[in-house]
Design a protein around this nucleic acid. Structure first.
Lengths: 229, 229
DNA sequence: CCCGCCGCAAGAGCAGTGCTCTCTTTTTTG
DNA sequence: CAAAAAAGAGAGCACTGCTCTTGCGGCGGG
């Protein structure tokens, strides 16, 4: 039905949609999500603003499309960085993925802010974004799971009051992982984004100057924290 | 000069300024920074919008005032939580401060987003905010420094390429701290905000459900990471 | 004591925003 | 080929931050 261009009309629709997203992404990268304006996008594309609503019913829908693209772009960057070191040990792979996330964030600050900064108020991400959002997470889970199949995965502490939650968590995410590792993994995942966010949003200004080795070391210690050998 | 009300005029100015901030804070808490409108604030206060510019020359200046207040409120929450356990060990004090930060963030999500979420594009925090912003950091530094004076502070790893940066860092922040502890402290500080931010911004939705013990455990492991006994 | 000045408020206005509605043109489809 | 669906154009609404001009009224210096 909606697949490959049944007519010139459908093909044009795909092209215009892509052009809108492209221009919107340009404005997002240049000015940030708050300054992204439908009218400005339309103006730049030589169309009238109301015409744009035929393609995206609201500004939030455009933002949602950009969010999914951003998640995908980040996921792809992480995955290709991981593929390049797939033969190495879990630690190297972990650090490689973390480094890729940081590098992508530094290269696309506004996109990163869009997906991992404070959500635009009033806006609630629809379920559509979930698969794209999960890509980096799945990568990290895979690394820890692989490590768990091999030797040397450290024993991690797990307080009694956290055990039920940790068991539920690994049941959903990675059934072959010990609960303590699952909990540590999720915590490390959040902490990774704390490190990246602080650097990106200027919190390290005049505190950390040489940020590359600092991040590398922190990422390595995160690997410790999830018990990677 | 600018001190205690030289006349009724000056007193009124202080009161109106306070009323503006109060109403702005209400709107911030209810709707978030992006939806905070000068005109709406003025309307609610029964004044015309242009009059408000006599008190805050721009929307950004109002936001800056709210940011400082938010930092102060968070700092005070953390400090009073710390004071309540000042007699206990470094771990307990560390976890108490982390917990207070989380609790404050959950109680004031939009304020938290304002200071630790993605910065409003085009807006750059003036130097005025720095002292208020530093309060929680100073608290954490103090805990680690105290621990370092006592026994049991763990030896932390420090890669060679990070040493110069770590030395510079402790020279600025806490000269009596070993460089490795300083680097670990800054990393832990960032990671704390990663944990809080992920929970607050919905990234843990359907992943972590029982968040209180989860956070508690993660904060405890952060204490490990900075070598607290 | 009083007059002039300055702080303050009010109102109009500018340029911009998201979004809706109607009207016309163009293309697809039964 | 005619009816229906899709797309574009343009006007318009309610809102935003911000500026400018115009008046009013309390305060300080002569």
């Amino acid at each position: 039905m909606t697949s490959t261009a049944r007519g010139a009309r459908a093909r044009a629709r795909i092209e215009v949609t892509a052009a809108i997203k492209e221009e919107a992404r340009r404005q997002l990268a240049a000015e940030g999500a708050a300054r992204l304006s439908l009218r400005a996008v339309a103006r730049e594309l030589g169309m009238v603003s109301s015409a744009l609503y035929r393609y995206f019913p609201s500004r939030d829908d455009l933002l949602t499309a950009l969010i999914i693209d951003a998640y995908d772009s980040l996921g792809e960057a992480a995955e290709s960085a991981h593929a390049a070191v797939a033969q190495e040990g879990p630690r190297q792979r972990w650090v490689a993925v973390c480094t890729a996330v940081r590098r992508w964030a530094l290269a696309h600050p506004h996109e990163y802010a869009l997906i991992y900064g404070s959500p635009v108020p009033g806006y609630h991400a629809p379920q559509t974004t979930v698969p794209a959002a999960a890509r980096v997470g799945l990568l990290l889970i895979g690394i820890v799971r692989d490590a768990h199949r091999g030797p040397g995965l450290a024993d991690l502490p797990l307080p009694a009051d956290l055990r039920p939650e940790a068991e539920r968590l690994v049941a959903d995410l990675a059934p072959d992982l010990p609960p303590a590792a699952g909990a540590a993994l999720v915590a490390a995942w959040a902490q990774l984004y704390g490190l990246v966010g602080f650097e990106l949003f200027g919190q390290f200004h005049r505190v950390v100057e040489d940020r590359e080795p600092f991040f590398r070391h922190a990422a390595t210690r995160l690997a410790d924290q999830v018990g990677l050998p």
